[in-house]
C-alpha cells in the first residue's frame, strides 16, 4: 500500500487542559502524604531502638523485674515476656478457632440469613468497643469471682481479637471463587466437605495472616490487662492462678516511674514488644506469600 501524501495531518497531541497539571499536583500530594505517614513511624522506631537496644540482653529477657530504684544493669523483664507470650497465646487459642468457625458459618452456611446478619452486626459492634471497656467487662464477670490471673487477661484479649478474626477470615472466604465450590458440589460433595477440602485450603493463607495480625494487635493491648492480671515482678507460669504481668503493662508501670533504671527497662520492654509484633508480621507475610503462590 502506497502512502498518500495528500492526507491531512492528524493531531494526536494532548488537548490543552488541566489534566496534566492536576496529575502532577496529585502525585506531589500523594508523596507528601506518604512522607507524613513515615515521619511518626520512623521517629517511633528510631527512639525506641536508640533508647532500648542498649539494655536488651539474655539477662534482660529472662531475669525478674527489680524494684524501680535499681539501675538498668540489674534484673530484666523476664516475667513480662513470659506473661505476654502465655496470655496472648492462650487468647489466640480461644479467639482464632472460634473466629474462623464463626467466619465459616457466616460465609458458607448462614449466607444472608437472619442469624448470620445478627452475628455479623454484633461482630462489627464488638470491633468498636474500647479495649478498656472490654477489660472492665471481664473484670466484672471473671476477675471479681476468680481473682487476678492470666486466664482473665486472655479472655479480655480474646474478646478484642474475636471480631477482627471473624471479619478478616470472612473476607478471605468470600474471595474463594464460587466456581470452585460448584466444581466440588458437582462431584457429589456435601457442604462440609466443600468447606474442608476446597474453601479452607484455598483461603488458608489469608486466614492465617489475618489471625496473626489480630494476635500482634492483642499483644500490644495494655488497658484490658491492667484490670485482669494486675502487674507482678516475678515470673508466673501458671495462667490459671495468681496475678501475672505483660510487656505493655510493664511499659506503663516503668515508664511512669521517676527512676532512670525503670525508664530504661520500659524502653527495653517497648523494643521487645515491637520485635515480637514484627516477627508475627513477617511470619504472616511469609505464610500469605507462600500459600498464595501454591494456591493461585
Amino acid at each position: 500500500m502506497a502512502t498518500t501524501p495528500q492526507q491531512p495531518a492528524v493531531d494526536l497531541r494532548e488537548p490543552a487542559s488541566w489534566r496534566r497539571t492536576k496529575n502532577q499536583i496529585m502525585t506531589v500530594l500523594m508523596v507528601l502524604a506518604m512522607l507524613l505517614i513515615l515521619v511518626p513511624l520512623v521517629f517511633v522506631l528510631y527512639t525506641v531502638i536508640s533508647k532500648g537496644a542498649g539494655i536488651i540482653s539474655g539477662q534482660f529477657l529472662t531475669a525478674s523485674i527489680p524494684p524501680n530504684v535499681l539501675p538498668a544493669s540489674i534484673g530484666g523483664m523476664g516475667p513480662a515476656v513470659v506473661g505476654t507470650l502465655e496470655i496472648t497465646g492462650l487468647a489466640t487459642l480461644m479467639a482464632v478457632p472460634l473466629g474462623v468457625l464463626g467466619a465459616i458459618y457466616l460465609n458458607e452456611y448462614g449466607k444472608n440469613n437472619l442469624l448470620s446478619r445478627f452475628i455479623g452486626f454484633f461482630a462489627d459492634v464488638m470491633t468498636g468497643v474500647p479495649s478498656i471497656v472490654m477489660g472492665l467487662f471481664i473484670f466484672s464477670i471473671w476477675t471479681l469471682h476468680f481473682g487476678f490471673n492470666g486466664v482473665g487477661g486472655a479472655f479480655a484479649l480474646a474478646c478484642l481479637m474475636l471480631p477482627v478474626v471473624i471479619r478478616s477470615s470472612q473476607q478471605m472466604l468470600s474471595l474463594v471463587p464460587d466456581p470452585l465450590r460448584e466444581a466440588s458440589y458437582a462431584l457429589g460433595s456435601t457442604r462440609s466437605r466443600v468447606t474442608l477440602t476446597v474453601v479452607l485450603p484455598t483461603a488458608i493463607g489469608g486466614i492465617v495472616s489475618g489471625a496473626l495480625l489480630a494476635v500482634a494487635r492483642a499483644a500490644g493491648e495494655t488497658a484490658p490487662l491492667l484490670f485482669t492480671i494486675l502487674t507482678v515482678t516475678t515470673t508466673n507460669t501458671d495462667v490459671f492462678n495468681g496475678a501475672n504481668t505483660a510487656l505493655p503493662a510493664q511499659i506503663f508501670a516503668n515508664a511512669s516511674s521517676p527512676y532512670t533504671g525503670a525508664q530504661a527497662r520500659a524502653w527495653g520492654a517497648a523494643l521487645t514488644l515491637i520485635v515480637i509484633a514484627f516477627i508475627l508480621l513477617v511470619v504472616a507475610r511469609f505464610i500469605t506469600a507462600r500459600f498464595t503462590k501454591v494456591g493461585r
Binding site: P177, P179, L180, E182, A183, A186, G188, P201, V294
Partner: peptide, 17 residues
C-alpha cells in the same frame, strides 16, 4: 447422591488449586 451420578463440566475451566 444425585450429583454423584450426574456430573457436570462448567463453562469456565475450574480446576481446584
Amino acid at each position: 447422591a444425585v450429583r454423584r451420578k450426574i456430573g457436570m463440566v462448567f463453562q469456565k475451566p475450574n480446576p481446584f488449586p
